[in-house]
Amino acid sequence: MMFRLFWVIGLATTLLGQPLSYDPNPMGSIKQPLILRTYLPDPGLEPAVLAHHHRASKSPKYSPREGNDLPGEYEMIQTIPAGIAVNHGPALSYVFDTTECRLLYAWQGGFLDMFPYWGEQDGGRRRSFDYVPRLVGNLFHLAEPLERTSPQPPRFLGYDIREGVPTFHYQKNKISYQLRIEPDDSRPLSFQQILTTGDQVEVSIVTGEILSQHSGFERELKFKEANVDAGEQVFLAYGCIACHSTDGSRGHGPTLAELYGNTRQLANGESVLVDESYLRESILTPNAKTAAGFPPNYMPPYQMKEKELQALLLFIQSLSPAATSE
């Protein structure tokens, strides 16, 4: 996407990143996290975590044509209605909930696939009863139920942004809290939590382990045969472009330009020839080998159909003209 940028003169302490675009996989960065309020997935929170939410019930299906109930009931969806999602690039994503006033979950690797909610650029159609955005990445932290839940609902007050990073303000039992969450690059699958209450500042590192892996919304891509063009469709649809450039520039993940057919240095000091089997492994089980200079766990495993995978491999090969022309 091309922008003609004019930087506002002066020192901006709260710089916003790129505006949102048609890209269904928006990402922020470590310095300029993206804040997105939207319906958010519930990746398996215990109901007790959502103690201050209200409970809906199944409702009889309704025929707007007849004005009567129909057999069957509407299923309820699992979504967090009033959460705030924050993304620091592949290093950290998390959801702060304005109803419970606490961190609900955190993940690494990607952010949200907004495709089911935002729809295509042209049609703009949400996915009817299935529009909750999907996680992308490795979930490593889920909030546990609190030992004691106050009958008094917590009160969300808002947030401030300093150096791009939000600090959430809320009250529980009339006590004011400020919570700031930042990526922690000293160890994998972790984040730093800074909780301020009055004069007290409590800094803690929260570390988790991979609880579940998410690769976004399953697309229905329509193409007849696996070729380079179809592969480009796959590359865009799965949001690969958010981390992997095709022109040699450095992104959150290694560039795909001149990758195929060359040797890749790995984080463990070994090296490997980038051939079809290495690429296949890196897409399906990315943590099997980590490229040197890039952190582990950033890339979630992608489940894709064999034909999509074949097309994607052809597209990646096409980005190394020298290797493929031999």
Partner: peptide, 26 residues
């Protein structure tokens, strides 16, 4: 009615409010 309702809602839920085409479930 072209879309669903969450199991865990923000704000009080009403089963009568939930009925019909356009609805006021919360």
């Amino acid at each position: 009615h072209n879309g669903p309702t969450a199991e865990f809602t923000l704000g009080e839920y009403s089963k009568f409010g939930r009925r019909g085409r356009n609805y006021s479930a919360v």
